[in-house]
Nucleic acid binder design. Structure first.
Lengths: 341, 341
DNA sequence: CTGAAAGCGCTTACAG
DNA sequence: CTGAAAGCGCTTACAG
């Protein structure tokens, strides 16, 4: 027996057939307790592990999920949005808990490898994450649907397939921020992000924010909206451009924490104090939010819960069980810190 | 042909044998250009993808690497050290470039799954990352060596097997910080981290720091060293404990950025100004370092290069090629920012 | 350059 | 409860 032992080796040493070894190790109820113990004992002694490739091939499944992190094409290599890295951590844990391995790929929206994962039987299902341009996503959704690939998507909805989405209640999150600004009597608001359908999460946050302001007879002036993708630099530039045009405001809602952190830098550079002159609130609650100065108020999305929801829903999809749409919406939570006192 | 097409389907449609399909798709030189084209065309049309489980089983390899992120057991779920997340990103990219998939697992140092990855043929090799306790690692190294698992380790050395380690030149990094403090005439130094063999990276940083100070007739007083693991909270507490004992210093070297950021919080809470009263330098250059206030001076470890080195070395190990030890050491780079002017 | 055949190491009907 | 047998979909000697 050179090389790794096989189930035949175990069978031989345990004095049973190879089929019985397989059954015993998989916990089949068809095996007597005595036999199971004997097999387990020999397997442990010989340091035997079931060959995943063989078992996956035979069983026609992989016990593996894949996570695909789409990034804005402009984002530099090392600068992955920390929010998605937190998500990745919680997804990993959720997978481990369910006995699944996790393949990870970070990719720009240009290539098409994601389809491969499922079609080449490397993964049973796919989790899509990212703050990329939603318009770029849609053909990919079509492709995934056409190949009957099982997938769930964070944030962005697939048309007419709500069961494929897990998302924060972005609209509610936006309205929490509006309520907070109203409490502070800071209703001359700027919004930095994207209000278009290129970015469904950002625009939902804006909608919730705007709708609540309007309920109080206020609104965000068109001029006080600047477009940014989810990076510190983009938030900085967008805010700069507002300030360069002498546009004033006493509160600023950044569609993500990175945007808000960039906005604070721009404000401070222009001699504006946060929160005295401008109250700032972000979205995500990345670790950095607690450590920047002033500490950033933000809307928290609980990544531990979100990761578990994504994995749960995907596994339900794979096993063709009903999806509970109520378990697909993550409640946001306003975290008040120094930037909006 | 219901379900996914197989190589036999392609063979049938292309009018060749199944062996030829396999050869054509794998780019074998034994296939004529004409045949190759025909096969590729049919495969594309039928949306055929090679079944990875079958090809892996047959070829006895997986084209997959696994990365295991060990964490300090005290670290909370969502609080993965951002440095390792950056590493993860670059490792992912490096793997993709080499045509390998990447399995990811975050785990506490208690369990033993890592051995599984290789033994169950799920991965051809393993990358170990983490700021965990080195003493806990050693039995795991033994196990990996005993099972002839191919692996590389970030930071910590495996005894007598330098080819298994990829690491920053931590000692050089520490000496750069010492040089900088000497330039600033701030030689009454504190060190927050771990100088023991539980943490080889931190202690190498300290050694480099201390040795250089001694070359200038200075040194770090035993009393001014406080032990911390790599979290903001731990850095905060350790610094607090120094201050509570009325221990003074005009420079502080945090063994990691998170430690340094926690230290700054403790200093500021005690009314000490950074950098006026205490100059602070960290290690890693996590994204947060640029955004905290004051911006943190630190020793950068280039994660893009580091990830590529880890993957390159592991692939060389797998293909049993010589490892160039010079390509296993990452040069550190001092990044000067506001916290140590 | 191509094809027929063996076999990678399992899981799972089928028969007892 | 157990065993003998088929077969998952490939890769790769072997023969031509």
């Amino acid at each position: 027996m050179k090389g790794k032992p096989t189930s035949f080796d175990i069978a031989h040493h345990a004095g049973v057939s190879q089929s019985t070894v397989s059954r015993a190790l998989r916990g089949s109820p068809l095996v007597s307790e005595e036999t199971r113990k004997k097999v387990a004992e020999v397997a442990r002694k010989l340091n035997y592990k079931v060959d995943k490739n063989a078992s996956n091939l035979r069983a026609q499944q992989s016990s593996t999920l894949a996570v695909l992190l789409y990034e804005d094409p402009t984002t530099d290599d090392s600068q992955i949005n920390p929010f998605f890295l937190s998500m990745l951590g919680s997804i990993t844990r959720a997978c481990a808990k369910e006995g699944y391995d996790l393949l990870v790929s970070f990719q720009s929206s240009s290539n098409d490898w994601h389809v491969d994962y499922a079609e080449s039987h490397r993964a049973d299902g796919i989790i899509l994450l990212g703050y990329g341009d939603y318009i770029d996503y849609r053909p990919k959704f079509e492709r995934l649907l056409a190949t009957k690939t099982k997938f769930v998507c964070w944030g962005a909805c697939v048309d007419g397939r709500p069961e494929l989405t897990v998302s924060c209640d972005n609209q509610l999150g936006g309205s929490l921020v509006a309520d907070h600004f109203i409490d502070l009597c800071r209703t001359d608001c700027a919004f930095i992000g994207d209000t278009s359908h290129h970015s469904p999460e950002f625009s939902a946050r804006f909608q919730g924010f705007e709708t609540r302001l309007q309920a109080h007879g206020k609104h965000v002036s068109e001029r006080k909206i600047a477009t940014a993708i989810s990076t510190e630099e983009s938030g900085y530039q967008a805010t700069k451009s507002l300030l360069a045009n002498n546009i004033t405001f006493n509160a600023l809602f950044g569609a993500s924490d990175l945007i808000a952190i960039g906005a604070i830098r721009a404000l401070q550079e222009s001699g504006l104090r946060v929160p005295q002159d401008v109250a700032v609130v972000g979205f995500d609650d990345i670790p950095m939010a607690r450590f920047c100065t002033p500490q950033l108020s933000t809307v928290q999305q609980n990544t531990t819960v979100a990761g578990q929801m994504l994995v749960d829903n995907l596994l339900n999809l794979i096993s063709e069980q009903e999806i509970d749409l109520n378990k697909s919406i993550l409640p946001p939570k306003l975290m008040l810190r120094q930037s909006s006192q």
